[in-house]
Every structure is written in structure tokens, then in C-alpha cells.
């Protein structure tokens, strides 16, 4: 893979930390949600965060 530029590194590092947090916290909120419509919104949130972390940590 080509070397990454300063802005790419900055953005990717920020995305990684933010989304490991988002995936943990959103999964927890999902577990505790009371209504179905909120659950469905949170499921999408977890899915986005997990997919992002997965892509960033491929070795």
C-alpha cells in the first residue's frame, strides 16, 4: 500500500479510537434499549462502527 499522507493518518487514527469507543458504547446502549425503533437505529450504529474498526485493523 502507498505511504499515507498527514491528513490520512490523522483522520484514520481519529476514526479508529472513536469507533472502538462507539462500538462498545452503542452495543451497551442497544442491550438496554426499551423500544424496537430505537433498537433498530442502534443496530445500524453498531454495524457502522464495527465495520469501520474491522477495515482499519486488517493486517
Amino acid at each position: 500500500m502507498e505511504d499515507l499522507t498527514a491528513s490520512e493518518i490523522t483522520n484514520l487514527i481519529a476514526s479508529f479510537s472513536t469507533n472502538t469507543m462507539a462500538s462498545v458504547v452503542t452495543s451497551d446502549l442497544l442491550k438496554k434499549a426499551e423500544s424496537d425503533d430505537v433498537r433498530s437505529m442502534l443496530e445500524l450504529g453498531v454495524q457502522i462502527a464495527k465495520a469501520e474498526v474491522k477495515v482499519l485493523s486488517i493486517s
Binding site: 500500500m1 502507498e2 505511504d3 499515507l4 493518518i9 484514520l12 487514527i13 479508529f16 479510537s17 472502538t20 469507543m21 462498545v24 458504547v25 451497551d28 446502549l29 442491550k31 438496554k32 426499551e34 474498526v53 482499519l56 485493523s57 486488517i58 493486517s59
Partner: peptide, 26 residues
């Protein structure tokens, strides 16, 4: 990031949730 030879920050994990059974936000 790993492919580009870059170090990733320490991730957050389930260990960062201290009360997994309590609802705290409506």
C-alpha cells in the same frame, strides 16, 4: 493502517463499560 506500517492507538473494549447491567440513559 497496518498494511501501511502504521501503529494503531489502544482500542476501547468491553472492559471500559463498568456496569453492563444498568440502564443509565432514557
Amino acid at each position: 493502517m497496518n498494511q501501511a506500517g502504521r501503529v494503531l492507538p489502544v482500542p476501547f473494549t468491553e472492559q471500559d463499560i463498568l456496569l453492563p447491567n444498568d440502564k443509565y440513559y432514557s
